[in-house]
Design a binder for these strands. Structure first.
Lengths: 231, 231
DNA sequence: CGCCACATTGAAGGCAGTCAAAGGTGGTGG
DNA sequence: CCACCACCTTTGACTGCCTTCAATGTGGCG
């Protein structure tokens, strides 16, 4: 069983709130469960509330006319998503789908607005959360527009190694937390291309790949590729 | 001479505020003037405040290692920019440069924070502004990743025609408010490619182009191209 | 009038996507 | 426990959109 309140407390969205305030928020939340691959909301659907991920992974993504997919973000536990949809137009701007067995907290718009009005701190937290999203999207635009796939892959590997890597003698080791298909979609490419890029990095002895386990052997070389100096 | 207060009132960022509150805000603002092509701030620079455009145009953009440019947004009068930089990391995430003779209002971080604390309404306005930025960036990501250049051009023409077009008997007429180089950079491409796309649209009698003046002859055809059904 | 930045056009090449097929892996049920 | 199956991953060959490079056209402004 998941301690929902604990997870809410971990979310930056609710930081600085009193226990009582978090209790109020928990009280208006509705727990929803999804199996792997279930649709949480669709692009264009009326936005009736927003979500906090409790457990599992959720991908937020766009689809093209011919079915190609661009993942905007993969939501980890304690992260909020679709907050912005409450404040702009009234529809969700993308799709959201569970990547695994997932539990989310759903907060209906109206009741949440009631709480915001009474908590100026909450407004500031929301501003912080939106600003973070904004920065992520600026980075994503930069990558898609100004970097080739190798650079995007290198950037992702470096970022992930900083977030969750362990420095061993063989190199910096970490596990991809998503399938390579999802990763490709997040990086604005397809699994075939990702596969080829990883192979080239392997052949240059910059990384080692064992399934989802990645070992960075030459951090500096990756950095150069990441910044677009070399390919 | 520009009536700064009038422009502040027009900005959604300050809507719902009393005259007195807007007066306070005006009081902490510093007017800055730039000639065409001047740098307002650089990526990575410490974010000491944010801006509201009073007159002229400002481009906010990213640069690649080899000097290619992606415009994130072109700021029109009464629009705020770099608000988000106040709330995330302390640096500007992109460059800003004047595209014409420009006047901006600059609000230093600290004094503005003082005002925010006393005005919950202002927080809500900021949330609205950030949400709007977010939606724009989601759209930009979608375009860059999932649409080809023709579709992006078509989308831009349609959007602009809705914003500033006049329906005449010859078609929907409007003026591009930026040079084709800037437009190309905004659309994630280069002027040569944009030129070719516009030529193809001309040859198909979907639009007419007379310098910066665009006349949409076949709106439906543009819509199909915009959505990626045809090219 | 001449300069300069912007715009257009053509030719050529490259990065990445598409198509097709084989290889690998994990999970489920017999 | 193992065999089967579905899905993911990898590899190869090919295609195409877009960029790059180069040259010419054009319009505004000193």
């Amino acid at each position: 069983m998941i301690d929902k309140k604990e997870i809410l407390k971990k979310s930056p969205l609710f930081s600085g709130l009193t226990d009582q305030e978090i209790g109020q928020i928990e009280a208006i939340g509705i727990t929803k469960k999804y199996v792997k691959g279930e649709l949480i909301f669709s692009e264009g659907e009326k936005a009736t509330g927003f979500f906090v991920n409790l457990s599992g992974q959720v991908k937020v993504y766009k689809l093209s006319a011919d079915g190609r997919e661009q993942i905007l973000h993969i939501i980890s536990p304690a992260e909020a998503f679709a907050e912005a949809a409450l404040f702009t137009g009234s529809t969700y701007p993308a799709f959201a789908e569970s990547l695994s067995q997932t539990q989310v907290f759903y907060f209906p718009k109206e009741s949440f607005f009631g709480i915001i009005r009474k908590n100026p701190q909450l407004s500031l937290n929301i501003i912080g959360g939106l600003s973070l999203w904004l920065r992520r999207f600026v980075d994503l635009v930069e990558e898609l527009s100004l970097k080739d796939v190798s650079a995007r892959v290198a950037t992702y590997l470096l970022d992930t190694s900083v977030r969750s890597g362990r420095e061993l003698e063989e190199g910096i080791v970490f596990e991809l937390d998503v399938s390579k298909m999802q990763l490709a979609s997040r990086l604005g490419t397809i699994s075939e291309t990702l596969s080829r890029v990883l192979r080239r990095l392997r052949e240059q002895d910059i990384i080692r790949v064992e399934g989802k386990k990645i070992i960075i052997l030459k951090r500096e070389a990756l950095k150069e590729i990441s910044s677009g100096i070399v390919r």
